[in-house]
Amino acid sequence: MSEARLAPNMPDWMVRHANTYLSSGGKEGHDYRIAPAGYGEMVVPALLLTTTGRKSGEKFIFPLFYGKAGDSYVIVASKGGAPEHPGWYRNILANPEVEIQVGTTKLKARARTASGEERAGLWQLALGFWPPYADYQKKTDREIPVVVLDPLG
């Protein structure tokens, strides 16, 4: 099995963010400072998600904003409101066993897509840590998936 690498075709800011996170061992990049268009500067918690490619079988790393729900982590498959789901989400549909790094802590988790009332509550949580998700939802016809990462062990 190959070592995990950054996912291809990520925007430059995500590559820089992931590289900072990785090179610091998680000491930097966990709290990501950003000023999205139409919003003031904010600090957003970020984790690194490692998925297994659904076609290649390779391990890919994606930096993502997250929230906490109990012991689980909540991430959003927004892709900025693009018409299609992000690659990492398609990967977890094929193989929900993932690895995450939150700061300096690394753990294995199982990903699942929230639905119904659980999704509604977690969507509100997500809007709390990254308000632009509301704008992304307006840009697309798809329901943006809210993903729960349940730690294993």
Results as ranks from 00 to 15, higher is better:
103 G>N: 11
75 I>W: 08
71 D>H: 14
75 I>F: 06
76 V>H: 01
80 G>H: 07
47 L>A: 02
74 V>Y: 03
47 L>F: 03
72 S>V: 04
49 L>R: 02
61 I>V: 14
122 L>E: 12
105 T>D: 14
88 W>Y: 10
72 S>N: 13
81 G>A: 07
44 V>F: 06
52 T>G: 09
55 K>L: 11
72 S>A: 15
40 G>I: 06
98 V>H: 12
67 G>L: 05
95 N>V: 08
104 T>P: 10
65 F>E: 05
57 G>Y: 08
46 A>H: 12
53 G>H: 01
57 G>L: 05
100 I>N: 09
99 E>R: 14
42 M>V: 03
67 G>M: 06
68 K>N: 13
117 E>M: 08
35 A>L: 09
113 T>V: 13
73 Y>D: 03
85 H>F: 09
114 A>K: 02
60 F>W: 11
110 R>C: 09
36 P>T: 04
84 E>R: 15
40 G>Y: 08
89 Y>N: 00
111 A>L: 10
123 W>P: 04
94 A>E: 00
58 E>A: 14
107 L>F: 11
119 R>G: 05
96 P>V: 12
59 K>H: 14
125 L>T: 05
93 L>A: 08
47 L>D: 00
88 W>Q: 00
58 E>D: 13
79 K>I: 10
40 G>E: 11
45 P>K: 06
120 A>W: 09
126 A>S: 06
45 P>G: 09
79 K>G: 10
35 A>C: 12
37 A>M: 12
42 M>L: 07
62 F>R: 01
115 S>E: 15
50 T>E: 11
39 Y>L: 08
44 V>Q: 01
78 S>M: 01
92 I>L: 15
89 Y>C: 00
67 G>N: 04
84 E>V: 15
53 G>E: 00
110 R>P: 08
118 E>A: 08
77 A>E: 03
73 Y>E: 03
104 T>L: 12
96 P>K: 09
41 E>Y: 07
69 A>R: 14
85 H>D: 10
88 W>M: 03
54 R>V: 09
51 T>N: 00
80 G>N: 05
50 T>Y: 10
110 R>F: 11
63 P>M: 04
39 Y>H: 14
48 L>P: 03
59 K>N: 08
51 T>W: 01
50 T>C: 11
77 A>K: 06
99 E>C: 09
77 A>I: 06
90 R>D: 12
72 S>P: 07
121 G>V: 01
70 G>H: 14
